[in-house]
Design a binder for these strands. Structure first.
Lengths: 333, 333
DNA sequence: TTGAAAGCGATACCAA
DNA sequence: TTGGTATCGCTTTCAA
């Protein structure tokens, strides 16, 4: 049988109330008895039943993390960040995965709500409107990571415009004028259309027109990168001299496709990527990239919640990014 | 205020007992009232309080997953597998990360126990003895994934010997006799020493001696792979013609180190890896690998638990692996 | 500093 | 098919 508070209380000749207070370090008690009780509890192998505790105190120590099931190599990093901040505070991470199956979505969503999570962290995820509505009516704070969803939801993210502008600026400074955005460039989601807009805007600010801008792809996959130069354009006569990959994986796809066609990078094409995970160092040539600090994004988001600063109004926190110059950009000036 | 069962019961003019039975599809009730109740519950935005439910029913719908915080690129895949099997059954995954900090370990462990998890899944992880002891005294089933811990703990894994033997056999069939095992080859953990032993055993079965076997490295990292041929051995006079990398990342490290030194793979060195994730396709040349079916391992493990077959005695389930021949092995016969 | 007792929200047994 | 009610293990006033 499982050891309960009552058992411990009996063994210690105390009331459950006192034992509870001691074991949760709440309220008043003498340090002498406290010591004794803690010892007894340990010996008996007592473990609090968190469900009972949550129920009685009408609160939960769990926060939900919703991760898209499609390939996102940075989810790991973010979760680590969240986790770090969480360990210190005693909160629990309830990590759930979301795919396209609506039945699954409902269920995921249900576990979150039935566990009375204190907050929901969305990882680069645009959840269906009905979910959003539910969350809000239950007044569960939502924090979006790596992307700004709308004007109500708080977010911790890199500054998307700066990310794009830094890259464009870097390429322009090396003499490039015809630039492609490759990866997730579709107009149907919030996230990708923002990037697309930022790209155009940044081009403009560099005195370049939409004639200088090229787009390819609907997702952040390796295949999209690969196909961009093999199927999307004539690899022997690319209309652009540089490409911005919306994710590292896309960049590697481009590099491999070029290599496989005996075209050298950066001589035949310059490539830069967004994200800057380990992959960019493992590529040959190593990729110039703008690195996002994912772990930091996770840490900050969690602390934002813990410090309860995330109450009513929206907060947007930008986490700095860093341009890392490596060997995938040719100076053609 | 949060909507409770009682509220729904009142609104429906029924007892909480009936409503509970209906909403959990347990016991008898008429489909007519059931329909009405479900509708009312939905309208009121009712969500069961899982903590209360767990408490009352004296069981938990949560299972714990313990993931090592060090870089393991397959954790993702396994979690997806676990998740898939879990969604259908209504269980929840409580995913926790384990690092070397003992205080953290205790805490992780605490959340697991305080949540009364029904089982604990260990991802390629050798947990401290005291944890193991606790888990067993609380009679929480433990299932180890991708590795066999001892003769008591159930496991779902690839057959490690077959993995190693397939690789050795493949290399030998291509005329290689001097072979290196690179990556995690240390003798201090169960997992790595088993691999090492298997390697030696397999060599023997192929009429090769320990003189033909080489070892390098203490972890599964890219750096270890890279250093093996740059620092571990003289890259211009490697004593082996083929290398088995204990993880994909290690293999890529070797490939890059060779490339950077203007040595071609497989001409100067043949490389095969264990795991077979996407990375092996992205490498140039593409890597010959023995592919583990991680998602399947997760799925099977979870089902093993759900079907309750994992009661008293140990079970070892082997999930088939697949040799994928690509371009990183030279035939030197 | 300690104890008694009233919940928390659901489940499940036993009656009706 | 439905309802009453004890119970799960803990927290939290309020008194002692």
């Amino acid at each position: 049988m499982v050891v309960t508070l009552k058992d411990v209380a009996q063994a210690a000749n105390l009331s459950v109330a006192s034992v509870s207070r001691i074991l949760t370090n709440r309220g008043r008690y003498s340090e002498t008895t406290a010591k004794r009780v803690r010892e007894i509890a340990r010996e008996m192998g007592y473990f609090k039943n968190q469900s009972a505790a949550d129920l009685a105190s009408k609160k939960s120590r769990a926060v939900g993390v919703v991760v898209p099931l499609i390939h996102t190599n940075f989810a790991d990093e973010i979760i680590k960040g969240l986790y770090e901040a969480t360990v210190a505070s005693g909160y629990e991470l309830l990590i759930t995965y979301l795919d396209d199956n609506e039945a699954h979505q409902t269920q995921v969503f249900n576990t979150l709500l039935t566990r009375q999570v204190g907050a929901v962290f969305l990882l680069s995820l645009d959840i269906p409107a009905w979910m959003m509505a539910q969350l809000t009516t239950q007044s569960i704070p939502i924090i979006s990571l790596t992307t700004i969803l709308n004007e109500h939801i708080s977010a911790v993210t890199s500054n998307e415009f700066i990310v794009m502008d830094t890259l464009v600026d870097h390429l322009v400074s090396k003499g490039h004028t015809n630039i492609a955005l490759i990866g997730d460039t579709k107009l149907t989601t919030n996230i990708s259309s923002v990037r697309r807009r930022n790209f155009i805007e940044s081009m403009k600010q560099h005195q370049l027109t939409t004639e200088n801008a090229f787009f390819y792809g609907n997702d952040h996959s390796y295949e999209t990168g690969y196909q961009s130069v093999t199927e999307g354009y004539d690899i022997n006569a690319l209309p652009f001299t540089a490409a911005i990959a919306t994710a590292d994986l896309v960049g590697v796809g481009i590099v491999n496709a070029m290599n496989d066609a005996n075209k050298s990078i950066p001589n035949s094409l310059s490539v830069v990527t967004i994200d800057g995970l380990q992959l960019t160092e493992m590529s040959r040539p190593q990729l110039t990239t703008i690195q996002q600090n994912f772990a930091e994004i996770g840490r900050i988001a969690m602390n934002l919640f813990i410090e309860n600063s995330i109450d009513q109004q929206q907060q947007i926190i930008y986490v700095p990014t860093k341009l890392i110059e490596r060997d995938s950009v040719l100076d053609i000036k």
